[in-house]
């Protein structure tokens, strides 16, 4: 196990470093222009959001519809911090990201308290309600611009930051899932009653799943704020949460690799296909329905597997 793990770690780290060097070089040399670089940053941010949502929706098995709300908290808190202080970016930005993450984590913890008593449909509704409350409160907060929006946020989200943090998020999630805590989280998805009977404190692990997910949503939000440089409560609607959910569902619930791939595709594709934006949500809604139908229909699934096998080949039942 130890040896195997080290080998895997070496491969992972090598991929990460090479990926960084190649993309960095392409940006430096101008092959990737400013527009494409923007897409690249959004890929990193969406990877963070998707992987983190997968922890609650894929591994814990609870549909969370308030991800955009946690993202908003991270975005606003970090922006408030960098706008109020004027330290050097290298100090200020990581602290702002961390603060954004922690603020979202606290919100996630608060939401998880009523959520613990409920399962399935009701839990989904509670997270939806929490997301809407967050957005509604932001609309009424004048220090962050209310409905008019929050402007003048420094442009801190560089490729290096976005890439680094996306990698941290992926590694932390994989590591969590491979630990006893991750196993406990998955056991709740599989059978909550059996998990309790096996000595798993399901409430505790639900909270861990929730706050972990919320933390990285907040971190993603912080990066987003310092990329967009302008925030408005209207960005963080239920539609945004659903968009991230689509990425999770398409990549496969409970698959981190899948999340990374689908977040990338669904970020790049709309940019490549002109005029796609009109049909984007329509296509997304079809993705949700068809993926779910395919999951429970062997013929449809076979068709899907064929189409997706090219990049899902090495996938185990779960990561």
């Amino acid at each position: 196990m130890n040896k195997e793990f080290r080998k895997q770690l070496t491969i992972d780290l090598a991929t990460v470093v090479i990926g960084y060097l190649v993309l960095g070089l392409l940006i430096r040399s101008g092959v990737i222009n400013a527009y494409s670089k923007g897409i690249l940053l959004m890929v990193c941010i969406n990877v963070i959001l998707t992987v983190s949502l997968n922890i609650t929706s894929g591994f814990l098995g609870e549909l969370a519809l308030g991800h955009a709300g946690f993202m908003a908290i991270g975005a606003y808190v970090s922006a408030l911090f960098t706008k109020s202080l004027n330290l050097i970016p290298l100090v200020e930005f990581p602290v702002a990201i961390l603060l954004g993450g922690i603020a979202a984590l606290i919100a996630g913890y608060i939401v998880s308290i009523p959520a613990l008593r409920l399962r399935g449909d009701y839990l989904a509704i509670i997270t939806l309600a929490a997301g809407e409350i967050i957005r509604n409160l932001l609309k009424n907060l004048d220090i962050v611009g209310g409905t008019k929006g929050y402007t003048g946020i420094p442009n801190y989200t560089s490729f290096t930051w976005a890439y680094l943090i996306a990698v941290i998020c992926i590694l932390a999630s994989k590591s969590l899932i491979a630990s006893r805590h991750g196993r406990a989280i998955i056991s709740i998805r599989e059978d909550e009653i059996a998990a309790e009977a096996s000595g798993i404190d399901t409430n505790r692990y639900k909270i861990i799943g929730f706050v972990f997910s919320a933390f990285f949503a907040g971190v993603g939000g912080a990066l987003y704020a310092h990329y967009l440089r302008f925030l408005q409560p209207g960005i963080f609607t239920l539609d945004k949460s659903i968009e991230i959910l689509v990425m999770v569902v398409l990549g496969g619930m409970g698959s981190i690799r899948g999340s990374v791939i689908s977040a990338t595709i669904l970020t790049v594709l709309p940019e490549l296909l002109r005029g796609f934006s009109d049909y984007r949500m329509l296509v997304y809604s079809l993705v949700l329905i068809l993926m779910m139908l395919a999951k429970h229909n062997d013929q449809l699934r076979a068709l899907f597997d064929k189409a997706l096998s090219s990049f899902r080949r090495k996938e185990a039942a779960h990561e």
């Binding site: 056991s187 599989e190 059978d191 009653i193 059996a194 096996s198 798993i200 039942a317």
Partner: peptide
């Protein structure tokens, strides 16, 4: 009531937690 989509070993690892 097993953890159906987990391996046999993982089922036991969860109670060994």
């Amino acid at each position: 009531r097993l953890f159906r989509n987990l391996s046999v070993k993982e089922n036991v690892l969860i109670s060994l937690d």
